[in-house]
Design a protein around this nucleic acid. Structure first.
Lengths: 243, 243
DNA sequence: TAATTAAATATGTTTAAACAAGTTTAAAAA
DNA sequence: TTTTTAAACTTGTTTAAACATATTTAATTA
């Protein structure tokens, strides 16, 4: 539930932009007009605008106004967005998700695992291997490590549905920040066993460390995508580096 | 030149965090203390903290304080950061850059180019093809399209050095936002001709549209990276999606 | 008419204050 | 001693105001 005013304005403007209520390159109403429209202070509309700018939706211009620079992307590939579950991603991409559990075990982190995942040696973990299909086609192979201490009660049944729904809904965990790195890696035997890779000999790999609202890492995941169904989006803004 | 107070605080805190003046998982001084330390208002320190949070450096905790969650990455691969020139990236990765111009031509956008690059049909463009080497090893193949109207005067000599230095320094262009998509694509004949790909049959490809401070797109670039020297980093924060 | 000047309008930065809400600490009560 | 309560401290949201700076528009002047 978005209770904060700036979040309501953010969502409302975002929806208008995505629905092309404002055209690409069109100017948004001035801050003054938005203040009247939403009956709030200047700072509050500015916060909503700032977040949409960070999303790559808007370009504020000093003294001129704020321009819409959002362009809808054609959805051919499976786009990776913010922190979201496989279910949420599938829904956003208008595809039917299906998950098959390949492995579900518990283990204790050793030094090798600590180095790779960031979980301290001795940590109790769940290790899950899942094959993800979209519209019946197996496309993604996930290797998850969850910190047992913060995710206790996980079962294969939950892993087949939605782990995040369980963590947020049942356990009351607040998922906050995810650090991700994207690389291209050679296919493994497991990849080949479960995914039809044509003649590709590499996979698009997203590894992520995810933290709760206390800054404690509870998840390490390696998500291996079939290359031709993979698309990662990002918006960067340039920071003045001249000292 | 960072003239804004929040930017000075941002840079100062960032440096302290990167230099491990604060340890991983350590708490930062409270807002109150930072206000005294930097002699500024609460909003100003909060802005600096907010930007470092977006960078994945900090995790603010309601009622508790702000935790440092920055972990230095081991620099084995070539990491891709914000909007930066090849020169800037190379410097950040402590590598020696070298650029070889393969092609430098002018052309007019047709419908095919418009669809791919986002430049309107009829736009006058520079088209540049460049091979990028790091420490003597050819690793990246760049295909650039620059809108002539905003980048006039480009020459092969400039393209061999730094286009961004020319645009920002000489032309006074302000580079603002870059929308990027990351995909994995099959190698082309040109890739194979210039880059030693071992047995890899794909490349990591970053395509980007870059805008100036008026929201006008002046660049479209496809940057093709050798897979084993490529690493893309990203930080995502979860937005409460429950309505 | 054309150029200049001034006013109005736009976003950018900073400070101040008030209140909300979560967490910790210390005091008070059982 | 243990539990409860209250105070102190933390970050989160919102409003208000002032000033800076860039741009556009309108008025003025040459």
């Amino acid at each position: 539930m978005p209770k904060a005013k700036y979040d309501i304005i953010y969502r409302n403007l975002k929806e208008k932009i995505e629905n092309e209520h404002y055209a690409y390159q069109e100017m948004l109403p001035s801050e003054h007009k938005l203040i009247q429209e939403y009956d709030c202070s200047r700072n509050t509309v500015r916060r909503a605008i700032a977040e949409l700018t960070a999303d790559g939706y808007l370009q504020p211009m000093h003294g001129k106004g704020v321009r819409n620079i959002y362009q809808p992307v054609e959805q051919t590939a499976f786009t990776v967005g913010g922190i979201e579950s496989f279910k949420e991603s599938a829904k956003r991409n208008h595809r039917e998700p299906f998950t098959q559990i390949i492995q579900f075990t518990e283990l204790t982190a050793d030094e090798k695992i600590e180095k790779r995942t960031g979980f301290k040696k001795g940590s109790e973990l769940y290790y899950i291997q899942r094959l993800r299909s979209l519209n019946g086609k197996p496309l993604i192979l996930d290797h998850n490590y969850f910190l047992k201490e913060l995710t206790h009660g996980l079962t294969p049944e939950i892993a087949e549905q939605s782990v995040y729904e369980y963590l947020e809904g049942t356990l009351g965990l607040t998922i906050s920040t995810s650090k991700r790195t994207l690389t291209v890696e050679r296919v493994t035997q497991i990849d080949e066993k479960y995914i039809d890779l044509k003649d590709y000999n590499c996979m698009a790999v997203i590894t992520s460390q995810t933290f709760d609202d206390n800054g404690i890492q509870f998840e390490y995941t390696q998500s291996r995508h079939r290359p031709d169904y993979f698309l990662f989006q990002d918006v960067a803004t340039r920071r003045d580096n001249r000292r």
